[in-house]
Simulated scan of single mutants.
Amino acid sequence: MDNVVDIVTALAAPIVEGHQFELVDVEFVREGKSWYLRLYIDKPGGITIDECALVSDELSEKLDSIDPDPIPQAYFLEVSSPGAERPLKKESDYQRALNHYVHVSLYQKVSGEKAFEGFLRAVDTDELALEVNLKGRIKTLTIPRKNVAKARLAIKF
């Protein structure tokens, strides 16, 4: 269903950017018997429910006007904030997350683990430097970007 994501991203980006918001992510997923088209939007200081409703209304109108329908099956449209544990997908997300607490899941183990939480201290096109607490010791791990399955902001308790 990547085609749906591509189509919706192309339609949603001008709407979202027209309101000076950021389009964080678009996903089209099946959960049980239902399909969900989810857009995550944000802006400095956070996004409001009214702003989510505004984008939802404008995108819904745009999708309804297209013939043939780019999404033939029934689905639920959800527009929301990415939340406090916002995913890191784009380069600008990683740059904004520098010196913040993050969670990183890996494809292959590093130091015997496939997931880490710590402070993102450096990032470039090839690797991340993550300051973590390993068994009571603070260490800086260098993680190849190609080994990062998912990364997101995290809340430190």
Rank of each mutant, 00 (worst) to 15 (best):
Q20Y: 09
Q20N: 15
F21M: 13
F21L: 15
F21E: 01
F21A: 10
E22L: 02
L23A: 02
V24P: 00
D25T: 12
D25W: 11
D25P: 05
D25Y: 11
V26Y: 04
V26P: 01
V26H: 02
E27M: 14
F28C: 03
V29H: 09
R30D: 08
R30I: 10
E31L: 14
E31I: 14
G32Q: 08
K33F: 08
K33Q: 12
S34G: 00
S34Q: 10
S34C: 04
W35P: 00
Y36W: 12
R38A: 08
R38Q: 11
L39H: 08
L39D: 02
Y40M: 13
I41L: 06
I41G: 07
D42N: 12
D42K: 02
D42W: 09
K43M: 13
K43C: 14
P44E: 13
P44V: 10
P44A: 12
P44C: 02
G45V: 07
G46M: 07
I47H: 04
I47S: 03
I47V: 14
I47R: 05
T48H: 05
T48N: 06
T48L: 00
T48S: 14
I49Q: 00
D50M: 03
D50V: 03
E51R: 00
E51W: 05
A53N: 15
A53V: 15
L54P: 00
V55N: 09
V55G: 03
